[in-house]
Nucleic acid binder design. Structure first.
Length: 414
RNA sequence: GUGGGCGUAGCUCAAGGGCAGAGCACUGGACUGUGGCUCCAGUGGUUGCGGGUUCGAGCCCCGUCGCCCACCCCA
């Protein structure tokens, strides 16, 4: 093989593309009902918007970004996620002057230089939504409900909604200290990764998969026991709303977020039908980020859907037929071929998918092709039909055949 | 970045150190202008790449590249 796509970067072909389009179309329809409007964001941005927002010490920033200097020496990064560009856009265009809330969605590729594995690629697609300007938990409940409706709308079953609150900059430091205190005495028993997490991001220890670490962290303080009264109230209200809407959820006090900008509500949708990378969507609040980007104090919340993972799940149960032509036109001889070409154009003008035979071949091979591409009808046009102004039609699904005058073709097909 | 598994025809996979094969797909024929089913034939390979051991390597050894899975991290 002389050339192939880069590691972790893949082509998306039919028939997969039909599943992608179904997800995108459904999302469009559902977002419209919730007043989320599309924005199109650049794929490359100034590097610092990601460093500032995602966090300097995260793996994404430290080793996973596609960063390069442009011709003028400016540091450019291919977006590893969508929230930072969305916030940059919101602030840059002073969208906070428009009536609040402002609700947006976007979709497109993200880039992270990681080792590929199941459900993880270097170029991967997300649909993201962001809602700016509402701190009340009714907004949290709304977007979680919207996400559920979307997943239901595309026919995704057996997913778990996990939610948590990770507090705000008022209460999280207290919780962090409580955690550090708890782990301090037995730190040397934890795995090397956790010892590193202790320094870098102790909340992540709660997330460790090593058996020994899971045992050791039994009895660790829970973030939900350390929330300040405002965060507590916000979280309780969200849970109440979810119950009102009968949205099934699991409280997971060990659910943490990898990106630094999150506050309060954190949630994740997972599936057991994927590999280790089982999150199909995730999101949360980021009430401080707009300010950090130089905008006014503006609460916000959003989530992102991992397209490849959704498509993987949908493929398991996909039963829809692939799109197929209505008519294949088989012809014999040059004159018939030209007549067939004209008929194809006429039928297309009426909205039908028609495949001509592009030159000549034996009738047998033309019909074989009609069968292979799953056409519903085959038309046969030869000298006899030309003279009579008719075509032979053949319904390939029902194995029926007959003759029809060219001017009456449409009534046959509808 | 770390660990494990796997690289043979377009696809799925065989081949005990001894002639590189099958099924599917593709093209044609049986059937002169009628698809699917069946039968027959044909096209298609530097066995990922490079080196080594051997009379002889798809197979054993070393290196390298690629893919997959897991860790880290994350949608």
């Amino acid at each position: 093989m002389k050339y192939s796509a880069l590691k972790g970067i893949q082509d998306i072909l039919p028939p997969d593309i039909h599943i992608w389009q179904k997800v995108e179309f459904t999302a469009l329809e559902i977002f419209r009902k919730y007043g989320f409007q599309e924005i199109r964001l650049p794929i490359i941005e100034s590097t610092d918007i990601f460093i500032r927002s995602i966090g300097e010490t995260t793996d994404i920033v430290e080793k996973e970004m596609y960063t390069f200097p442009d011709k003028a020496g400016r540091s450019i990064t291919m977006r590893p996620e969508g929230t930072a560009p969305a916030v940059r856009c919101y602030v840059e265009h002073h969208l906070y002057n428009l009536p609040s809330p402002q609700k947006f969605f976007y979709s497109g590729p993200m880039f992270r230089y990681e080792r590929p594995q199941k459900g993880r690629f270097r170029q991967f697609y997300q649909i993201g939504v962001e809602a700016f300007g509402v701190s009340h938990s009714s907004m949290d409940a709304e977007i979680i409900s919207m996400l559920r409706n979307l997943l239901e709308g595309i026919g995704l079953k057996e997913v778990n909604f996990e939610i948590n609150s990770i507090g705000c900059d008022k209460c999280r430091p207290d919780y962090r200290n409580a955690l550090l205190n708890f782990f301090k005495s037995r730190l040397s028993d934890f795995c090397p990764d956790c010892q590193r997490r202790y320094e870098l991001n102790p909340l992540r220890i709660l997330d460790c998969k090593v058996e020994r670490c899971i045992e050791l962290r039994q009895g660790a303080p829970l973030v939900t026991d350390h929330l300040c009264s405002e965060c507590r109230e916000h979280f309780d209200e969200l849970i109440f709303r979810l119950q009102t809407l009968k949205i099934p959820y699991t409280l997971n006090p060990n659910l943490v977020r990898g990106l630094d900008y999150y506050t309060r509500t954190a949630f994740e949708v997972t599936s057991e039908h994927l590999g280790a990378q089982k999150a199909v969507a995730a999101g949360g609040r980021y009430d401080k980020l707009v300010e950090e980007f130089g905008g006014p104090q503006t609460p916000a919340i959003g989530f992102a859907i991992g397209m490849e993972r959704i498509v993987t799940l949908l493929k398991e149960t996909w039963t829809e037929d692939h799109p197929a032509p209505k008519v294949f036109i088989a012809t014999l001889g040059k004159e018939a071929e030209i007549e067939g070409f004209k008929i194809a154009e006429d039928l297309r003008a009426k909205g039908l998918w028609v495949e001509p035979n592009y030159g000549g071949a034996s009738l047998k091979s033309q019909l074989r092709k009609a069968d292979r591409i799953d056409a519903e009808f085959a038309f046969i046009i030869g000298e006899n039909e030309l003279k009579a102004g008719k075509v032979q039609w053949k319904n390939l699904k029902k194995s029926e055949q007959g003759e029809v005058e060219i001017k009456n073709i449409l009534t046959l097909l509808t």
